[in-house]
């Protein structure tokens, strides 16, 4: 009798620990785009969870719904139905301002097209997410410098304008920007899509570095070679998860 009770408590404890470990918890996510009278289902019911510290690559051909999934996970867009918990919070129930705060505090984003402010210095680009916050100017700059070094950016380029950089350097700046608020998760949407093979590998190594340091990373790509850098590969096709392989 005592043993059974202990087992139940132990199991509950394990479940609880597992729940704590889970960074992302998705249940039956659906996204339907309506253009005029035509309805297109980009996601047809996706269920999975991602634990803290994982490096996940979501791979799939174009039109598979991987970008849509990424945008929902990144709190940039809302699902049509289903539930999505990020770090224990139900994202689909948040309003616009709460979503903004969530993106600021928990999420770092790296885009395919870098999305840096043109004609603006590297440092100011990295400090962008800290605008209008209580952080002092000196601390903002200090943190930006640290993140840039962390992302492997040479210090001599800190005051260069963003449009004077090479593609690889731009993506490093974007990675540094995504790190500035010390986010729980880093999302990367085809971060190597605009880069040549050599630079791609350099950027991917930078992500592996971040993974080793304990960051949770979710990456989207359509190249198996890039996905190979990750520790878990989810394949998406036609709005559904086709396979989910952990290394």
């Amino acid at each position: 009798m005592k043993v059974i009770l202990l087992l139940i408590v132990w199991n509950l404890f394990l479940d609880y620990c597992l729940l704590l470990m889970r960074m992302i918890e998705c249940k039956d996510l659906k996204k339907i785009y309506t253009t005029g009278d035509v309805q297109t289902a980009a996601l047809k019911g996706v269920t999975f969870s991602i634990a803290k510290g994982e490096f996940v690559a979501i791979i799939g051909p174009s039109g598979s719904g991987k970008s849509t999934l990424m945008h929902i996970l990144g709190a940039l867009d809302n699902p049509t139905s289903g539930s999505y918990f990020l770090d224990g919070k139900e994202v689909s129930k948040l309003d616009d301002d709460e979503l903004s705060d969530l993106r600021r505090d928990k999420i770092g984003f790296v885009f395919q097209s870098f999305n840096l402010l043109p004609r603006t210095t590297v440092l100011r680009n990295v400090m962008l997410p800290l605008l209008y916050s209580q952080t002092s100017e000196a601390e903002r700059e200090e943190r930006a410098r640290q993140c840039l070094k962390y992302a492997g950016m040479e210090e001599s380029k800190f005051l260069n304008l963003s449009n004077q950089l090479s593609g690889g350097q731009m993506q490093r700046v974007a990675i540094a920007r995504s790190l500035i608020n010390n986010p729980a998760i880093i999302f990367a949407d085809e971060p190597t899509g605009n880069l040549d093979t050599k630079t791609s590998h350099v950027v991917m190594e930078a992500f592996q570095e971040l993974h080793k340091k304990g960051h949770t990373i979710i990456l989207i790509t359509h190249e198996a070679e890039i996905a190979a850098f990750a520790s878990r590969v989810m394949t998406i096709r036609d709005g559904l998860i086709e396979s989910d392989v952990k290394k």
């Binding site: 990144g74 940039l76 616009d96 301002d97 903004s100 705060d101 969530l102 993106r103 600021r104 505090d105 999420i107 984003f109 885009f111 999305n115 402010l117 962008l128 997410p129 605008l131 209008y132 920007r177 608020n181």
Partner: peptide
């Protein structure tokens, strides 16, 4: 508009 999208994506509130 893209700049605004970026600002929102990095977590800046609409009001600001």
């Amino acid at each position: 508009t893209r700049e605004i999208g970026l600002r929102k994506a990095v977590g800046i509130r609409k009001l600001y």
